[in-house]
Design a protein around this nucleic acid. Structure first.
Lengths: 123, 123
DNA sequence: ATTATTGTATTAAGGCCTTAATACAATAAT
DNA sequence: ATTATTGTATTAAGGCCTTAATACAATAAT
């Protein structure tokens, strides 16, 4: 998975989302060691300071913890990870339904559009 | 409908989205006259320059046109408005499915989550 | 013991966004 | 004819974000 950073929002907020995503989807497994700040920054083509800023946020949320000089580690609290995953999913759903509703689509329409799109995707 | 401007993205991009939304959902009907730049700016609590920047963009897309000193008007091209509405809707769907997929949800799960959420909302 | 790697902190520069204050041109309204 | 309202343009200031260049402390690796 690439980092897909766009210029329409602050990079550090996008990094936060990407990192959350990678932890929630198991790319960085529970308890595993994260790449160093410098490595992550190089990988995402951003300044180490910017990556650090994002990592600090994940730490505040408890998804990461730091062991001074041996690096950062993903939490082993699977419960927290799952809660985060569900929180992110619900947020996606909420934004989607709000957006479609604002465009004037009825619930029934939304469901049928989605069903159709999913079918097309899976063909 | 209030303007709901957040600070996590440039305001002018949010204004563009809001204005598109209002045209597509009929709040500003086809052919109708828009409030003046200054009035819109006051309404959204932003600087006239910022509102102007957003309006210029809508104009480039053909959703608005200007009649020098009598104001801006919404296009009468209902076809264009509908195309825009569908484009925005498809974009919502695409982002939603991408987001849920990145979180590791299967298509079937996505559909059932959405169905459930819609049911809860309508209770 | 020494070295390399880790996270962390600081400072300066530049860029984009937003606001604010003005001003001007065109024309509808009077 | 005059006035008010419209869109439009310009300039300066401040804020946040990002990068870049450094430096330091702690400790794992050697």
């Amino acid at each position: 998975m690439s980092w897909e950073l766009k210029s329409d929002r602050p990079i550090y907020t996008q990094l936060i989302e990407q990192l959350e995503l990678r932890i929630c989807s198991g790319i960085y497994p529970p308890g595993s060691r994260m790449p160093s700040v410098r490595d992550l920054a190089r990988e995402a083509s951003v300044n180490p300071n910017t990556m650090q800023r994002a990592l600090t946020r994940l730490e505040e949320d408890g998804l990461l913890h730091t062991s001074r000089t041996s690096g950062r580690f993903v939490t082993e609290d699977i419960n927290l990870i799952n809660q985060t995953r569900n929180k992110l999913a619900q947020e996606q759903v909420r934004i989607f339904l709000k957006g479609m509703s604002d465009l004037g689509f009825e619930n029934s329409e939304i469901l049928s559009i989605l069903t159709d799109t999913v079918k097309e995707w899976s063909i």
